[in-house]
Amino acid sequence: MLQTSNYSLVLSLQFLLLSYDLFVNSFSELLRKAPVIQLVLFIIQDMAVLFNIIIIFLMFFNTFVFQAGLVNLLFHKFKGTIILTAVYFALSISLHVWVMNLRWKNSNSFIWTDGLQTLFVFQRLAAVLYCYFYKRTAVRLGDPRFYQDSLWLRKEFMTSQPPKGSPSDQRM
């Protein structure tokens, strides 16, 4: 069973990382006095996303659903979050590499091309969606139903498994 204090701690860490992400996405363009500042901000931002991915997977592993072997059910339920986080991570890294590459010599130069603008729009949109889905998942994982055997879980198990599910259940 998930402890309330542990969950609060993990949730606040996740929200801290999310808000850092949002902050950098919003204000990184302003903080470009020196290219190094942006570089450090970007590196920490990507690390934060990576940490968030690790944390959410650790939370998955901690659920009763996962420990009961219903990995599929869990991943099916949160596939949006997982895919979106991965996409956002890839977009972020590519945008950061591109921007840093162009700005490294002169941080105050005008670097925008149509390609960069497009990537920028997609990255920022993905950031918003990532933030929404990640927040939703983190909050949902606080539901005690994920940490105990319940009628709901059994029902989900029956629906997620075809009729041959019962023998595999016994094997487990």
């Binding site: 309330t4 609060s8 949902r140 005690p144």
Partner: peptide, 20 residues
């Protein structure tokens, strides 16, 4: 159900709801 038996007063669900 069984689950009600073991529930402490301030659950993770409450934390999640508060944050939400």
């Amino acid at each position: 159900d069984v689950s009600m038996d073991m529930k402490p007063s301030w659950t993770t669900r409450d934390v999640a709801l508060t944050v939400h």
